[in-house]
Each structure stands twice: as structure tokens, then as C-alpha cells.
Design a protein around this nucleic acid. Sequence first.
DNA 1: CTGTTAGCGCGTTCAT
DNA 2: ATGAACGCGCTAACAG
Lengths: 346, 346
Amino acid sequence: MATMQDVARRANVSLSTVSNALNNTRPVAAATRARIERAIDELGYRRNVLARGLASRNSRIVALLFPAMENRLAGTALTFVTSAADEARAHGYHLVLWPLADDADAIQELVDQGLVEGVVVMEVGLRDPRVDVLAGSGLPFTMIGRTEHPGELDYADIDFDATLDTAVGHLRSLGHSRIALINGPESSVELAYGPVVRIEQAYRRAMSDHRLDGVVVHSERTVPAGRIAAGQVVVAAPDTTAIIVNNEHAAAGVVTGLTDAGRSVPADVSVISLLSSPEMAAMCSPRLTTLDSPGDALGRAGVRALVARIEKKAPTSQVLLPCTLHAGDSVALARGAGVTDGDTAR
Amino acid sequence: MATMQDVARRANVSLSTVSNALNNTRPVAAATRARIERAIDELGYRRNVLARGLASRNSRIVALLFPAMENRLAGTALTFVTSAADEARAHGYHLVLWPLADDADAIQELVDQGLVEGVVVMEVGLRDPRVDVLAGSGLPFTMIGRTEHPGELDYADIDFDATLDTAVGHLRSLGHSRIALINGPESSVELAYGPVVRIEQAYRRAMSDHRLDGVVVHSERTVPAGRIAAGQVVVAAPDTTAIIVNNEHAAAGVVTGLTDAGRSVPADVSVISLLSSPEMAAMCSPRLTTLDSPGDALGRAGVRALVARIEKKAPTSQVLLPCTLHAGDSVALARGAGVTDGDTAR
DNA sequence: CTGTTAGCGCGTTCAT
DNA sequence: ATGAACGCGCTAACAG
């Protein structure tokens, strides 16, 4: 592997001139620059990332800290990781993966290794020990999700209010008024998992905006749990004509559970799956109507904000992105209403 | 951040003694070691990864090269990435993500940056330009999947022969003999995508081992495509009683397509979904019987082999891992056969 | 067993 | 506009 010294010799200049030409850190005569570039081509030279990082104290490496082996976001998490890596690359950064749960010591150790210039933290909880560690370390970081009181911290999160306005509004426009929510597990609330808590708040607010009462049932993120939850809704509110479900695995179970209870989807009860992807939703029959997570956009926004902060080119970045409605076949007019078909209508 | 020099001063030893204590690269007196460890604790010292990498030429960073935005393995790809990162960490390595398609120049550039000591290549094709680039670079690498002629190259791949023996054998034991395969798209064959090619070969061999004729239909990896493919099977081989489907999205469509054609699953036709995950399969009704991809094991095996090669502690590592049968509700006794219930039987 | 010294490849003064 | 020299934090000879 050629070094910068090799390039310098071949171009008959000093090492520092090569460095300055590459970094545009001081003017270089056009002619010399040309000779340098030629030498670089001929040698196939690339700057050594390690040496550059050591000398400049800018490693151009950022970390993605995410909870290993959790599948809350299973559907979109891969998109998320991929787009984050891609965005980092677009900015000339490498992305390393730190698959860690709330292990403060492990995080501190990785931070202290001095490899990365910043961290993107996925799946941030309302109270998140990882955030405390990072804040204490002084290392730049941005959150995907956000704590209860983000203050001036950077984040990119889902706009739950807008998302539930869309969900409830869509159902309302089709004549539904008995709209239930099947949210993530109660344990998520206790664990201060943001989406579950915020979805519930947003749902209640959206419902009250429409002067409607709500019914909330909690469910684990599995098909059988969703099935049971559907039964609970039917018992608790037999006149329910629409259900908003937080998890797509649960949503699949909800459809089955409704069928068990003698309700057909969407003729009797409409179902909307929150934070899903259309690919997953297509596996159910009927195909679920979804509000898709903006996984790709979140990943990119998080990395972009982090890079901006590292390079001190930007103030606090706090972004909220709504889920987008993706029509399937699980939503229809409420019984007795006389409008149009919601899913197929433009 | 404290440096090794700081530790040395505080422990009243020289820099090199600290280094040697940390790396066990030469004997250090117990007493000295104790003083050093104490100093390290008190200062909260961690070795700087960059400096260590530069001096030793061992960055302890490996890359995961994977096709961005593809969803062939969507179901298990996240597991794969996560477990690879976790395994790397267990060996004291960092894992960086290189989300690149077949962009030889980009790969070469990243390699030349000298950041990583090795690469795990995901989704390797039968003829794969990325493998050529890496082989030419001299950098250690291991493949997930394998080229047509891997030679002495390291790889971890699915054992397609064993997997299709399991699938066909399972169906045979339930009395099925008209067993069709719905494989990935024809384009995958042309593109030399390993799994599609190898699954088809393994299917034909397994069928002929049982002295059976096979029927193969190709399908894109989507629900509607699977639905169409099911129709094609019914037309081409009306007496089919079982279908093995390569992709889980397609598999969901196959169930619908069979229903369209007046065949019920599993009463009339059994369906097995290949290279799936039980979580996805549970979203269908009936719940699909699957042969689950060993995503986690593949990721770990790939990283483990790579680390072994980097540290020169191992010869060629070529691993084949079978998919495991996971019973759902989409497989039953063949009509007219009088054995046992396959899915619920132990 | 321990200390001294020379790099690793590059950014960054300070000169000129 | 360009060179020379120093140092980033650490490993790895080479001494003793």
C-alpha cells in the first residue's frame, strides 16, 4: 500500500504539500496539484483512515448503538440500519454497529476507546440510561426516538400525533366512530418505551378532538397475543367498528381474533396497522391497511444530524416524521355509513 | 482521555511495560502489574483503538459487505447483521457496515483505506465480482453463501441438500408424492444467485432419490407473484398435493392462489415455506410450516471464520448449515394416505 | 523482568 | 506557494 510519502516523492514535492492538496488546507499551485494527482492515480493511493484519524483526531467513524436481538421494529429495522450506513458513507463516514442493550459499562468502554466521533442511538426510551452515559461522555450523539425531556438534544422520531390524526381521521371519514386501540404491552409503558406511551397519548387526544371515547387494550407483539386482544376489544366494546393496532404481528392476530368472534374484516370491523411496512402487511389476508414507519428517513436524518453536529455546522436538530397511510383491504366503510370506499378512493 | 503514558507515570514504570502488561506480550512482575492495573482503574484508561491499529497494523475492525436495499433475505437479514456484530464484539473486533452492491471501484476504495482487517461478504452469488475484488486485494475475507467454485475460500452457507431432503422427506412421510417447487425468479438463475440455483438442484435430486418427478415454477418474491405461481402449478400439475415455496412472501401468495383455485390448505394441498422465519410465517393463516434460515448461526460462523483467518489460527473453514423444520398448520396428510399428523407429531 | 527508541501514516505548526 | 520537523498514542524491536 502506497503512503503519502510515496506520493510526495513521485510528485517531487514534500509530504506536507500532498497533505494540504488533499485536504485543501492551504493553497497549492495548479501545476503541483496536477503532478500530485497524477502520482496518486499511478500509485492507486488512498489515505490511511487510521493514521488520518490519529493525527487529526477525526476518525470519520460513527457508531450505531442499537438494542441487540429485540424485534420491536423488526419490520423496518433493517431498512433503518442500511440507510444509516448508506447515509454515513455519503458523508465520507464509516458506520460501526454496537449491538448493546442498556449496558452502561459496555457503552462507556466503547466510547472510551476513542474510535468513533459520534453515536446514533436507536430505540431511545423516555428514560434511557444509554442517553445518560453518552451525555456524560461529551461525545456528540443523536437519538432515534427521544427521551421524555430531550431539551437541546438532537433527535429524529416518528410524529405520533400526526400519525394518529391520520389513522383516526381516515376512519372517521369512512363513518367510523367506535374506534379502539390495541397498543403494545403494558410492560412497555412501565419500561418507558416511547412509541407505546406516545401512541396512547396521541390516540386519546385524536379521539377527543373528534369528541369520541376511546378503548385501549394492550397486547404483546405476537400473533396469538393480538388474537386474544381482539377478543378483549369485542367484549369490552362490542359496538367497535374499527381497530388501530400498534404492532404488525399483533395486527395479523387481530384479524384472526375478530374472525373467531364472528366479525369479518373489513365488513364488520376495519383494521389499521401502525408502524408497519407494506411488505409485511401484504402477507395477511385481507391485506392490511398500514401506516408505514419512515424507517429509511429516520436513519438518514439521524446520521445527517450527527454529522452536522460533529462538524459543528448546525444547531440542534429535532425532527418528527409522520407515518404514511398505505391502503390495503382491511379498512372499509362503517356499517350504515353511506360515503365511498376509503381504501380505493383517491 | 488518559493516555498510556499517563498510566506509566502514575505506576512508576515505562510506557512499554504498560503496553506489555496489557497485551501479555512479555512477562510482567505481579507487583508491577498490580500497580499498573491500579493506575488504569484510577484514570479510567482505555487503549486508543486508532493508535493501536496504526502501530500494530491490526485495527481489530472488520467489515460486513452487503447489498443495500435488497430484500432477498429480508426476514432474517437483521438477525444476521446483529449476530455478526455481536460475534465480532465477542472477539474484540468492531464491525463496520459497507452497504454496497456490485460496485467494484467503491469496494476497492474502501479496502485501500486500510481501515479493516477483513471482510464478511453477504449474499454471495455463483459468480460474484465482489469476491474477485477481494481475492485480488489480498485482504482476508469469508463468504456467506459461496461461489460456484469456492476452492479454498472460506464460506458459511445453507445446506440446501439437507434442507430439501428434510422438506421432501417430511412430505413423503405424510404420503405426498406429487410435490411441486415454487422457486425464486428466473432472473435470479441468470444472475447466478446461489440459493435459487442450488435449491432447484437439491429439489430435483431429492425428488429423484424418492423416484418422483418434479414440477418447478418460478416466482418473484412478492405475495401477488406467489398467487399467480400457485395457479400455474395447479394448471401444470393438477394432482399436486404439496408445494415447497422458496420465498415467504411468495408463500403467503401461494396459499391465497390455491384458495382461488378451489384447493384448501392444508386439506387439499400442503405448503412448506423455505428459508423463512417463524415470526413471518405466523402472520399467514394457516400458519405456515417453515424451514427456517439459520441466519444467526451463519452470521456468527462467518465472523468466527474471518477472525480465525486474520489471526492465522485456522485453515480453510467451509461450513454448511441446514434449515430447521418448524411446524405450522400448512402441512397435513396427503389425501388418501393413512399415517399420522405430520405437523403435530413428534 | 524492565527501560529506551524508532517508527506506524498522517495533520499541523513553523519556517522560508 | 512549499518544506522541515514535530507529535497523535501506541507497538515492537533492541538493550540491559
